[in-house]
Simulated assay, not measured.
Amino acid sequence: MRTQLICLTVLAMGLSPSLAAGQATTRQCGPVEGVGPACLLARKQMPQLPDGKVYWHIDRFPSKELAERAGLPTSTVVEAFKSTWLFTLAGAGWKSASGEHVSKIGPLPITPATDYTAEYLRSIFTPGTTAPLHVHSGPEAFYAVTGDTCLETPGGMQTGRGPGNSLIIRAGPPMLLMAIGKVTRQGFALILHDSGQSPTTLIQTWRPAGLCARQLSADQAGAD
């Protein structure tokens, strides 16, 4: 029944049924990493964030134990894509004492709150896969290990190309995330929100202009 409702929602938004596979979800990630919906890698509640501008730091480690020793109270350790990752919310100048620094994303457009929760998602999308239309109560940041990213909102379109690309969106606007290009997109997302609010709300009140879909078509038509 749930699958039928999702497909009906996707059709009502003018998207093809194949796009329903990228549905947003809070289901826990399992050990098998296959193409399909986003899943929840980790959730961390924090009574406060660092002072000043906050960035999402991504570091890679050879083991979970080493990553845990290198973290801060605002750090989270996850295992995905055959690697161990340390996700840390900190100022621009923070650096892990060890590990491989992979990316610094930000500053994050944080919404004031008395208590914050960071939700980290993992997803594997083939080109053309998208999540349903939704909004967030806090900023969302995306990082792609592989593949290309397209994010459409009422304000236009953002794209990221190649391994390591990242995008950020503030709280509030409706959005459509799509994997574009010709390579499967493996990625992470961070939703940093007020702990007293739901992180994600599905919507049907906005219809995308098809900017990401047109970019996908152009990519597919382009030369290898």
Rank of each mutant, 00 (worst) to 15 (best):
G138L: 06
L40K: 08
D148H: 00
S198G: 10
W206S: 05
T84Y: 04
D224R: 11
Q28H: 07
A131L: 02
G160V: 01
G162D: 03
R185E: 01
L167Y: 05
T25I: 06
G156I: 08
I58Q: 02
G138N: 05
D224F: 08
T129W: 06
L66Y: 00
E152I: 06
A209T: 02
L15K: 11
M178F: 07
R161D: 03
A223C: 13
I6W: 06
S63H: 12
G187H: 05
I191G: 00
I124D: 07
A213N: 06
R43K: 14
G71F: 02
P199I: 07
F125I: 08
S217K: 13
M157T: 10
I191M: 04
W85D: 04
C212N: 06
P47Y: 00
P112Q: 06
K95R: 14
Y116C: 07
S166D: 02
T129I: 14
P62Y: 04
C29A: 12
G71P: 06
I124P: 01
K82W: 12
S96N: 08
S166A: 15
K53N: 13
L216A: 03
R207I: 13
A218R: 13
Y143N: 02
W56P: 02
S137R: 03
F87E: 06
A218K: 14
L8C: 14
R161A: 04
M46C: 10
L11R: 14
A21H: 12
T146W: 02
T201L: 11
G30N: 13
V135A: 03
N165Y: 00
A113W: 14
P199L: 07
Q4G: 10
A21S: 14
G210C: 13
V10D: 07
K64C: 00
L11G: 09
G155H: 07
A97D: 10
L133H: 13
P31N: 12
T9C: 12
L192G: 04
Q23C: 07
A67Y: 01
V54G: 05
I168N: 03
Q48R: 11
S96W: 00
